[in-house]
Nucleic acid binder design. Sequence first.
DNA 1: CTCAGTGTTCAGTG
DNA 2: TCACTGAACACTGA
Length: 264
Amino acid sequence: MPELPEVETARRLVERASRGRRITAVFTAPDRLVFDGVREAVLRAALVGATVVGSARRGKHFWLELDRRPFPCFHLGMTGGFHFYRGETGRPRFLVLELELEHGLRIGYSDPRRLGRIRLREDPPGEAPIAALGFDPVLDLPGVAAFAALVRARRRPIKALLLDQGFAAGVGNWIADEVLFQARVAPTRSAHGLSDAEIARLRRALGRIVGHAVSVSADDARFPRSWLFHVRWGRKPGARCQGHPVQFTTVGGRTTAWVPALQH
DNA sequence: CTCAGTGTTCAGTG
DNA sequence: TCACTGAACACTGA
């Protein structure tokens, strides 16, 4: 489920496994889609022999910092994920990239639907596509006044704005729905027409939800029972949240779960 | 067998 | 410029 909290959790796991270690071997699957134009030989030359010194994230993108540039950058799409194992027998299905580290641990990136992307960048935050991202709710959440100005500059439905990575980097479908639910704002409302109080509630909900999800390593079993999250999957007819019916519609081109009795 | 889906980008339209 | 729609990417699982 790679939205911001899942990506941050993946980043921490990958960094913990690799920081201070040299990359001794690289395996790549022949996948021109995920590698987004990066040739295998170029990727291999960039990675083999380099030592991982850290990592960073912005929105749903994260990258490994090496002892030399360029750095490998990852976007997990909808189905990308990391696996940790030793030996070739532990390889996951749909493996796209595998890094073998000097202590023998292998980090495999697999992506069944191949919507993720792996790129090389000299300066990840200063170059496309990361440079075009909006604020990150964990790193950069604007103050109330700045947040209100950003929101009111647009006339799109507020849910479509929340999903726009150029507005808030890292917000995906479930976070957008959860933020609107907890802020008690209907997803179809025009961003331009929201009141000061509604915008303040949206900002607080965004910070609180993303902060909590990150603090529990994106483990949804540890999300509070009151969250809409637990009933939004599967479009179950008759689903209820906090005693009220859940409505499923499409907003901003995405499946949207909301509670009309509580969101106005 | 059919269809929706945790994401993004691009072409086309208004 | 803004905003919206649909398609494309490719596969799983209900």
